[in-house]
Amino acid sequence: MTTVLIVDDQPLQRLGFRMLLESQDDMTVLSEATNGSEAVRLAAELHPDVVLMDVRMPGLDGIEATRRITAVGDRTRVLILTTFDLDEYAYAGLRAGASGFLVKDAQPEDLLSGIRSVATGDAVVAPSLTRRLLDAYAQHLPRPDTPTDGLERPDARLTALTDREREILTVIGLGWTNTEIATRLHLAESTVKTHVGRILSKTGSRDRIQAVILAYDTRLVNPS
């Protein structure tokens, strides 16, 4: 059973989500929150599998609430809901630790599938859309510091990776799926999945979305 916390300041929106989720045999709504502060408190009390998080809310917004919820290191994962698929708030939400995002007018089956995917540790943003999102807001990424001796040093988050793992992290950042990686690098898909799992573990990335952000942060991938 997947447990969900609904966070939205619009009563009708919350009601719609609750009715949809409770129509499913494998989902249950633990509670609802009308703002970010309530979301943080309820997430700490109830430990839901997934927080369905609105962005624009009075008081503490969904971005800061996401940051506080994921910073605890609990199993709870956050699925951001936004009005537009290239909304900069969605980008900020991903960097705050969300496991993905969906637009509010997504089809019901897409929302349900997204919640199930997030609950099992997967990401719900298509790789191509992730790339487009990060390209659009790459100017928000901090510029790397230049060492005083002029010598470029590898990012500490990448030092534990093998050459193959670094290569795969790079193409994950480029938006390749596991199937594409397997085909283009002449690997078994099961081998690719193993590499991806090790990359997530070694870099401390919560999911594939965070691995893509890492690839951008460390300049393995540069904005197009």
Rank of each mutant, 00 (worst) to 15 (best):
T2V: 15
T2P: 13
L5A: 14
I6S: 07
I6R: 03
D8N: 10
D8Q: 09
Q10H: 15
G16L: 12
G16M: 09
L20F: 09
D25K: 11
D26F: 03
M27N: 05
M27V: 15
T28D: 12
V29F: 11
E32T: 15
A33C: 13
T34V: 15
N35F: 06
G36C: 12
G36M: 07
G36R: 07
A39Y: 03
A44I: 14
A44F: 13
P48H: 09
V51N: 11
M53T: 05
D54C: 08
V55A: 08
L60T: 07
T66D: 06
T66Y: 05
R68P: 04
R68K: 12
I69D: 03
I69T: 02
I69K: 04
T70C: 10
V72N: 02
G73S: 01
G73L: 12
D74P: 06
D87T: 08
A92I: 03
G93I: 02
G93W: 01
G97I: 13
V103Q: 04
K104H: 07
D105V: 12
L112W: 00
L112F: 00
S113V: 04
G114L: 01
I115S: 02
R116H: 04
S117P: 02
P127V: 00
S128E: 08
S128C: 06
T130G: 13
L133S: 11
D135V: 08
Y137G: 01
A138I: 14
A138K: 09
Q139A: 13
P142Y: 00
P147E: 08
P147C: 04
L151W: 03
D155C: 03
L158M: 06
A160E: 14
I168C: 00
I172D: 04
L174S: 14
G175A: 04
W176R: 00
T177D: 00
T179Y: 01
E180C: 01
I181E: 00
I181R: 09
L185A: 10
L185T: 07
L187V: 00
A188Y: 01
A188N: 07
S190R: 08
T194P: 02
H195F: 14
H195A: 13
G197L: 12
R198P: 11
I199L: 10
L200W: 13
G204V: 09
S205C: 15
R206N: 06
D207S: 12
D207R: 04
R208D: 02
I209N: 14
A211V: 10
A211H: 10
V212D: 09
A215L: 04
D217Q: 15
R219P: 05
L220E: 12
P223W: 08
